[in-house]
Design a protein around this nucleic acid. Structure first.
Ligand SMILES: [Mg+2]
Length: 209
DNA sequence: GCGACAG
DNA sequence: ATCTTGTCGC
């Protein structure tokens, strides 16, 4: 009935999902094609964008967008209710295949260890990782080679990454990706903030112009 | 009670 | 996320 219970309901669902998805973790193979998603907003309209990026050619192979009215307001910790539907729709419009999905959000580094990257991966049943610009939960530990573990509930749930130049970012497993495979994925982009995410951001907002 | 709070 | 141009700094 009231908003209060709606939030409590979805938060409880997140807690359950965080444990349920662990059984789907699998080794991440060679990452040749990466998919990245992001959203942008206009007046009463939002654009979800998805791009497929070729690691070898360092270029966008395909880009798709999906426009709709924001289905939910932004509530810290429940971002997926607002953005996941449009991002999911944009990904489904892609005809190109990809190995892992990069989401502009958190994965396991979340108050209930199930951020938007976790839900997108579960819905798509494909490997995902969350890559955010700011921490929402947990604390970054000591850095070792440009990376520091993100500690939450007494365990490592992801990594803080310090690029050779630029602001640091935070990456954590979403769905189907093991924590131990995250460092290799970070290395694929030479520790820099992933280009495909910048491309998805660019595509999302250019669509509203 | 107060502050913090992905995008 | 968005409102916004030039400007300070690496
Ligand atoms: Mg974004």
């Amino acid at each position: 009935m009231c908003a209060r219970e709606v939030l409590r309901f979805f938060e409880e669902l997140q807690s359950w999902v965080s444990d349920a998805v662990r059984g789907y973790d699998a080794p991440l193979g060679h990452v040749r094609r990466v998919c990245a998603v992001d959203a942008a907003y206009g007046d009463d309209v939002m654009a979800g964008a998805a791009v497929v990026w070729s690691v070898g050619e360092r270029r966008v192979l395909e880009g798709r967008t999906y426009l709709c009215e924001p289905p939910f307001p932004y509530v810290p910790g429940l971002l997926f209710l607002r953005e996941a539907p449009a991002l999911f729709a944009a990904v489904e419009l892609l005809s190109s295949s990809w190995d892992v999905l990069l989401v502009d959000a958190h994965g396991r580094a979340h108050p209930r260890e199930a951020g938007m990257a976790t839900f997108l991966g579960a819905a798509l049943r494909k490997p995902t990782v969350g890559i955010a610009k700011k921490l929402l939960a947990g604390v970054a530990g000591e850095f070792t080679d440009s990376m520091a573990p993100i500690i939450l509930n007494n365990k490592t749930v992801g990594y803080a990454v310090k690029p050779r130049s630029g602001k640091s970012y935070y990456i954590s497993p979403g769905y189907g990706v093991r924590l131990e495979d995250v460092p290799a994925l970070v290395a694929v982009f030479n520790y820099e903030y992933p280009e495909p995410l910048r491309e998805a951001d660019k595509l999302a907002r250019s669509t509203l112009t």
